[in-house]
């Protein structure tokens, strides 16, 4: 049998999501960013809102997200996506707007923009990729780096006496009245991926209903920054990240469910 006989429409079980561009992903093999992108795009495609969506990806590994997502995108300065998104949504209230931010971006340099956009109850979706490290700049300590976890600027492990404790920004944001929906998910197993997709769908449906901020944290691996193989990194994430950043819903509205 020739390969051409196998690649037939009736045999396709999995294919590229329509909303991906033709550009190959530039993320390290095994990195969670690609899967997170795909779940986001599947949701946008299923909701049929490609033509109404504007995404904002600030500096971080996903700064090049605009290369891969076939939707209108803005690249923002490091940490400023929530401010950028605030204006986009207020000036075009009938569009769907999301930010896609790393932990350094959302919880260190952009903490003020994050908290205030959430507190104002801006009506957009925030996607927060927490990999506990600065991936793009080569693996420095992040606000979410675990105690004792090694990074290039804490080569002997994060010493909380000197470097402070990791910031559970997601729990903090859940306290704010402007924040409607908060959940923490992952993309390392098929089951986790399904849950993430469901969470993203809820987040965008909330936006349609003008409910305020919907916040989806995705605890993800950075196999390069963590200096592990993809498999090792996923195992390490389960053993170390999840106990500190437990998966599941953190703030769920009482009534509306999709």
């Amino acid at each position: 049998m020739d390969i051409k006989d196998i690649i037939k429409p009736e045999n396709i079980v999995y294919q590229k999501t329509k909303l991906f561009t033709e550009k190959p992903l530039s993320y390290c093999p095994g990195c969670g960013h690609g899967t997170a992108h795909r779940m986001l795009l599947e949701v946008l495609e299923e909701m049929n809102i490609q033509d109404k969506t504007v995404g904002i990806a600030p500096v971080g590994c996903s700064v090049l997200a605009y290369e891969f997502l076939d939707i209108d995108m803005q690249q923002a300065a490091h940490g400023r996506a929530p401010a950028v998104a605030t204006a986009v949504k207020r000036l075009m209230p009938d569009k769907f707007v999301f930010t896609y931010q790393g932990d350094g971006d959302l919880a260190a340099i952009g903490t003020a923009e994050t908290i205030h956009a959430c507190n104002r109850g801006e009506n957009f979706t925030m996607i927060f990729i927490n990999n506990g490290i600065y991936g793009m700049t080569g693996g420095q300590m992040a606000p979410t780096t675990l105690p004792g976890m090694r990074a290039s600027t804490c080569p002997f492990g994060r010493d909380t006496e000197i470097m402070g404790n990791p910031l559970k920004i997601t729990e903090l944001l859940a306290q704010l009245p402007g924040v409607y929906y908060v959940t923490r998910q992952a993309v390392h197993t098929p089951n986790a991926v399904r849950k993430t997709k469901k969470a993203l769908r809820i987040a965008f449906e909330n936006q349609k209903l003008k409910k305020g901020i919907s916040f989806v944290e995705i605890v993800s691996n950075c196999n390069s920054g963590w200096k592990m193989t993809p498999n090792q990194s996923n195992k390490w994430m389960e053993d170390n990240m999840f106990p500190f950043y437990p998966l599941g819903d953190i703030k769920v509205p009482q009534l509306e469910k999709v």
């Binding site: 300065a77 401010a83 923009e113």
Partner: peptide
């Protein structure tokens, strides 16, 4: 934040 809102 203001200038980044302007950017957006």
């Amino acid at each position: 934040a203001a200038i980044n809102m302007v950017y957006g």
